[in-house]
Nucleic acid binder design. Structure first.
Lengths: 153, 153
DNA sequence: ATCTCATGGTAAACTGAGTTTACCAAAAGG
DNA sequence: CCTTTTGGTAAACTCAGTTTACCATGAGAT
């Protein structure tokens, strides 16, 4: 029996905003990884998503990517190293900027990132089919207002 | 410079539903842990949230809690063990149900869980203040429709 | 010019959370 | 009874992330 098949179903009216955001967010997360794997990017796993997530690492410096992901430069650097070994990206020197380096996707990296966005767009279409285009647009608009507010910092 | 102070600000119109759900969701997550810690529940950390999250572990069996959290029984059992050591809960035999056990909050566990819900309610009030009660209700309604749909499975 | 400091990156040791593999105990069902 | 199913537990292993430490470059100060 899975969580969602329990005897007394969980009522959305009892739910607070935390769970209501978390559950679909995690579902999307899992789906992206699965579809990426199915599409041939088999080495990509959950931690790599810290790199692939919006707005993507291309053209950014490792420290900035780490900061976006909310993790240490060291951890991020290791992740980047593994993705470099796997041929998804390269780190090259940023000329005339001291020790700074810049991350660039390889062809494979671009392909994977494009696939992730494609999956996300598929998901949006499914949500549109479920909610209707009007309500989906409204949902995104409301989430956009949350994003732009100080609530999320 | 933090992520949110970048030169060219990230535009919500470029954003896909994944990031729009993930970012506030993670912000809420971090906030709850921080406030729990500040309120004296200093030992609670991110992994424990797999237990404290809706609908809470009280009265449930370890396997069910594991399933809800999407992790193995073994990992969950270790987490439960640590929370038992910390005095947040007890696992007792479920009489007449074989090897089954039942988790119950202690006083401290109840207090922590209540605090988490309180923080969530505070957050909801802040969102209401930002969006207005009408739009916030609309947001929750839309997320509720997503929850009840097959999209999230 | 050179010294000092700030910045960005890297490396190694440690920690800790989760999976895999394996096993035990109780009930159910032939 | 013997086998299967269910629920829980334990130990070894893996791996991601932090802490601690260090190196290289450029900028500003004296």
């Amino acid at each position: 029996m899975t969580f969602f098949e329990e005897k007394s179903p969980l009522k959305t009216k009892d739910m607070l905003i935390g769970a209501m955001l978390r559950v679909p967010s995690e579902a999307i997360h899992r789906r992206i990884i699965r579809e990426l794997n199915d599409a041939g990017f088999t080495e990509l796993s959950l931690p790599h998503m810290a790199i692939f997530r919006f707005p993507g690492p291309d053209g950014a410096r490792p420290g900035v990517i780490a900061e976006r992901a909310g993790m240490s430069k060291q951890a991020m650097n290791r992740l980047l190293g593994s993705l470099e070994d796997l041929g998804y990206l390269v780190r090259s020197d940023a000329p005339g900027e001291g020790r700074a380096r810049i991350v660039h996707f390889t062809k494979r990296g671009h392909a994977a990132f494009a696939k992730a966005i494609e999956v996300l767009r598929d998901i949006e279409h499914e949500w549109i089919a479920e909610l209707g285009p009007r309500d989906f647009a409204q949902l995104k608009k409301l989430l956009g207002r949350v994003w732009e507010s100080p609530l999320v910092r």
